[in-house]
């Protein structure tokens, strides 16, 4: 064999061997510290995926997180309740959380919150699955969802460090300090209230219907099917938003039809005139605590009506 080739092969082998060892060590250390801290403090994903046992779960994006007051729901339904909503995460994340939960137990009731444009083509819905990467090893049931992040996610996940990409500082923070806000969130069973009130309301056309992503529609159907198979009482809600919507979005039409076909109660509050007031909103899409109180009471009313 050519001497040059031998040299480069030897160099590459040494490099690869070192890479595997260092990657494994770094990945293991990060994994240890990622899961070391108390899961009840500031790690909603870890809590829902590994520990939650409440009878009523609220699942969805930031709308879910800020709009459904767990205590109010628990008091009126007489079911223990946890708000598993997550900032910046959409249907794929919601479905992954459902799968993790169903692997351990069957809740009695689930409230699924979706956005009025949930099915629109939105690469962020895939990108933000990064928060689930640390769970890839522990939760084989969600691997099929995580690998949808990108075409070569399987290859990237050969690395033990990659699941903790962009997590270094939050791991350090969580292990050195215990974030006060996150403590608060925990005491409210996942619900995070927003306090400020929006100053200026958006005018104009808030939603522009774009192409829908068939995968999101498929995931929505799967979510409904999985709940129905386990005889979970499922309610689908679309939260109010502040701007007026001039027409129903494609998502609302499709989601409503699928819900009707499967007999799942579906409630669309996106254009509810009672919520078109600044005092209920933190920003155009997220209600503050005033709006959350009113909205949760209406959610309870709807659930009672269906019962």
């Amino acid at each position: 064999m050519n001497t040059n080739l031998k040299v480069i092969i030897r160099k590459l082998l040494l490099f690869l061997a070192l890479l595997v060892v260092v990657d494994y060590l770094a990945g293991s250390i990060l994994k240890y510290f990622y899961f070391k801290h108390d899961p009840l403090i500031g790690a909603s994903t870890a809590y829902v995926a590994n520990y939650a046992d409440q009878k009523l779960l609220v699942i969805g994006p930031s709308h879910a997180l800020h709009h459904y007051i767990s205590k109010q729901l628990a008091d009126s339904t007489h079911l223990s309740c946890y708000n598993a909503g997550a900032n910046g995460n959409y249907l794929l994340y919601s479905y992954a959380m459902l799968k993790c939960v169903l692997k351990r137990y069957t809740p009695k009731m689930i409230i699924l919150d979706i956005r009025a444009e949930e099915f629109d083509v939105n690469p962020q819905g895939y990108d933000h699955l990064s928060v689930l990467l640390p769970y890839y090893d522990q939760h084989p049931e969600i691997r099929s969802i995580i690998v949808q992040r990108s075409r070569f996610e399987n290859i990237k996940l050969l690395s033990k460090t990659y699941p903790f990409n962009s997590q270094l500082l939050s791991i350090l923070n969580r292990n050195i300090y215990k974030n006060k806000n996150e403590f608060k969130a925990d005491s409210l069973s996942g619900f995070i209230p927003l306090k400020d009130t929006i100053k200026t309301k958006f005018t104009g056309e808030y939603y522009k219907d774009v192409r829908t992503d068939p995968n999101y529609i498929h995931i929505y159907k799967e979510f409904l099917d999985d709940c129905l198979k386990r005889r979970i009482k499922l309610y689908v809600f679309i939260s109010p938003i502040l701007p007026e919507m001039h027409s129903q979005t494609s998502t609302i039409k499709i989601a409503l039809k699928i819900a009707n076909d499967t007999h799942v109660p579906f409630f669309d509050f996106s254009n509810d005139y009672r919520f078109k007031k600044n005092i209920y909103f933190f920003d155009n899409e997220h209600m503050n605590i005033n709006g959350a109180k009113l909205f949760t009471s209406m959610v309870i009313e709807k659930i009672k009506q269906v019962k």
């Binding site: 160099k11 040494l14 490099f15 070192l18 890479l19 260092v22 990657d23 770094a26 990060l30 690469p123 990108d127 990108s150 990237k156 690395s159 460090t161 990659y162 903790f164 990409n165 962009s166 270094l168």
Partner: peptide
């Protein structure tokens, strides 16, 4: 030192994997 040389490069790769933006 071949070990130091390779370890330095490996640490760069790990830094990229850990801190890089892949999308």
């Amino acid at each position: 030192n071949i070990f130091i040389r390779n370890l330095s490069l490996v640490l760069v790769v790990i830094t990229i994997v850990l801190l890089g933006v892949f999308d």
